[in-house]
Amino acid sequence: MNNERYAVSLPGLELKNPFMPSSGSYYYGLDHIDDFDLNELGALVLKTTTISPRKGNPQPWKIQTKAGVLNSVGLANPGMAAVKADFLPKLATALPDLPKMLSISGETAAEFEELATIIEQIPSISAIELNLSCPNVDEGGRAFGVTAEGITAAVSAVRAVTTKAIYAKLSPNVTDIKPLAIAAEKAGADGLTMVNTLVGMSLDLMNRSVRLYRGKGGLSGQAIHPIAVELIWEAASVVDIPIIGVGGVTTIDDALELMMAGASAVQVGIMNSEDPLFLPKLIKQLPAALDKYHFETVVDVTHALHPLMDNEDEWVKYQEKFQQ
């Protein structure tokens, strides 16, 4: 698909279509090259990378629940040095024209800064996504993404050392997303990614134990989709920077719903493990979906939601119109 109707222009990312895998769902991309032509994607988002290698949490990393998938991978990755030396050169050779965004995580603002300093010197990386749901040791272990101070510290540190586009991935595990979105924008983020997984638990009744090593895990899947829609809508009402939406996308309609709420592009996570060809199928469904919902271009979908009604009579007439 190479048509202006489907293209989206974001800071650091010129997308032929708005779809990309979420961080972790394609690892570093090389394992999926034989699945389909990855150049069909709008962009490739690479796994969250840390300064030092991490083996992650004990297995299982993912478990199925009635509401979706709980994961507790523990940021397993080979570390920045190995990624820079082994993975990124191969990606640059195999997919020279595909925009690539690398997700990074640190336990301190200084670690985010160190990672960004390295990435600044890697031409094949177009943008940096900050995984702000990791524990901030400077704030007693609270995730960076749950306080404006934590977000400001991480984003500011990265902004100071890179000219590349920065996307702050916000956590949904907060009371009010608006001040956090504003904090990211003010600190220098070029865009937001929303949302990360929700914290959840699943228990084994027979063994009276947790099913994941750390007890808690990140919930993804259809259950979080309405939450992602609402939080994107909230954030989009207070910031001018673009949003990449993610959360519970299982159909093309789900993707367009995130965009109508305010997202300019869409990431897909858990569905990639259920169907390795989910993203190319989603891309192929885009033209018919735009026609069905009377959108001239995919860019027109973003912010297309009508203002909420505050008049009950108007709401009744609106409902009657669509029941006829």
Results as ranks from 00 to 15, higher is better:
N136K: 02
D138W: 03
I128H: 14
E111K: 11
P123L: 09
F112I: 12
E120P: 01
S126D: 13
E129P: 01
I119T: 00
S126H: 07
L130T: 11
F112D: 09
C134N: 08
I122D: 04
N131V: 14
I128R: 13
A127I: 09
V137P: 00
I119A: 07
N131K: 01
L132W: 05
S126L: 00
N136A: 02
N136R: 02
E129M: 14
G106L: 04
P123S: 07
E114Y: 09
G106C: 08
L115I: 11
E107V: 02
A143L: 04
G106R: 05
Q121R: 11
I104K: 06
A109W: 04
I118H: 14
A127D: 06
S124W: 02
S124K: 13
I118F: 07
I119L: 13
I118S: 03
S124N: 11
G141W: 01
E120C: 04
L115P: 04
E107M: 10
P135H: 09
P123R: 03
G141C: 02
S126V: 00
S126W: 00
A143V: 06
V137A: 04
R142P: 01
I128C: 03
I118T: 14
N136I: 02
V137Y: 03
T108E: 03
S133F: 09
G141F: 01
A110V: 05
G140K: 10
P123G: 04
L132C: 07
A110D: 14
E107L: 13
I118G: 00
E120L: 06
R142M: 13
E111N: 07
L115Y: 02
I118K: 13
